[in-house]
Design a protein around this nucleic acid. Structure first.
Lengths: 219, 219
DNA sequence: TAAATAGTGTCTCTTAGACAATATTAT
DNA sequence: ATAATATTGTCTAAGAGACACTATTTA
């Protein structure tokens, strides 16, 4: 609004999504290998241009579904990256989101089209990513690690029913360090968002663990 | 990256800035009255299209300077608003920032051009703002109120030198409620970011107050 | 009965809120 | 001396970290 001379930059807007899940007890994110220039052959976070009539979040959800087939997830806007020169094709502004996929919904083989897609542990990502995607991932990790401390986003990484040990595994995977079992359980207890079920998970030759469910409508 | 059919939306990107300052002990923000349609006559937060070769933050700083003449400020990206239909002129995506201007730098009469510009107390904003600017302001207030609790952004609203009472006035203006003087001082003390000066502010017939300065490089 | 994992409580330190009296200056 | 604002400390409650033993099940 206002601005007389000096023409506006001609820009394009993409939405990119850092998609997290837990695999083998470790935090992973999804990368796709680029089949075209620029950065052909490099790994990148999924994304694409927004379509007519689509909100930013709808675009992010669409990208997510195209890559994983998963629709019902936690998704949150992260940051918008728009430095000139961040994309050699021109002035491209990227609204970045991050999403959390439940343990049991994350497909083993992601990606719907020919492009190669792979889950990578956040502790061992490929060296050189496309564009400024390393920065975007850094932001996403920072945000996730911060928010798991004072919100209940962490529960979004679990299936509907889980044991307290499984929940702790998720928290440890995100934090990247072991947590004290008793302190962790007290902390979760105080959140007052878990419903204990009359079901137990039995695995191997050990005491079965009670299953819990996240209380609907708790955020 | 990827996307075959379904053409990308044709979009434009603006950068809008919620500019805060303290006036008369109350938190204020800057609004400009729109001289053209859409929303002619309505109050709006300053903003405009990004120019060639300009980063998003540079665009925000430029808008800020055009409206207030102030350059050296705290500025932070807030959120990106992009719902279709939020601007009747077409698909306009707005990257919102908020900025904090020091008490002694905020010009009384803001705005460089013909457009009317005014500082408004956040507790008494005009009823109907242009576009979705009420939502943007809500986000900005929420962010500022959250960040003043666990960062030192609050200091950015003060001049170089100030008394502890003046600092408390700022915190109270942002929080919107009175704070206990002793608890407040202990909390600031623990931040360990204030340098006491050998200067005192004397005002009227009362005990002079020591001046302090924010420790450079503390963020 | 051995192996494996689940489940549980206390002490301590730090943090934050509530709360009131004295100190210093100008008039 | 009075008015006005600055400066200062204690008690208490809640939250968070460190820390180890018992319970239950299957093989």
């Amino acid at each position: 609004m206002k601005r007389a001379a000096a023409r506006p930059a001609r820009v394009q807007v993409t939405v990119d999504v850092v998609i997290f899940t837990i695999r083998d007890g470790a935090l992973h994110l999804l990368l796709v290998r680029r089949g075209i220039d620029p950065y052909r052959g490099r790994w990148a976070i999924p994304g694409g241009f927004i379509l007519e009539g689509e909100s930013l979040e709808q675009a992010a959800l669409r990208e997510l579904r195209e890559e994983t087939g998963v629709g019902q997830v936690y998704i949150e806007q992260l940051y918008t990256f728009g430095d000139p020169g961040r994309d050699p094709r021109g002035r491209i502004i990227t609204v970045a989101y991050y999403a959390l996929i439940a343990l049991d919904r994350a497909p083993v083989h992601a990606g719907t089209d020919a492009a190669e897609a792979r889950w990578w542990p956040v502790t061992a990502l490929p060296k050189r990513l496309a564009f400024d995607h390393d920065r975007i991932i850094e932001h996403a990790l920072e945000r996730l690690r911060a928010k798991i401390e004072y919100t209940t986003v962490g529960f979004q990484l679990l299936p509907e029913e889980y044991t307290l040990s499984e929940l702790q595994d998720v928290y440890e995977a995100v934090a990247g360090r072991p947590l004290d079992k008793r302190n962790f359980r007290r902390r979760i207890e105080l959140l007052d968002v878990l419903i204990p079920l009359d079901q137990w998970r039995r695995a191997g030759a050990s005491r079965p663990a009670r299953l819990y469910r996240f209380r609907a409508g708790s955020f």
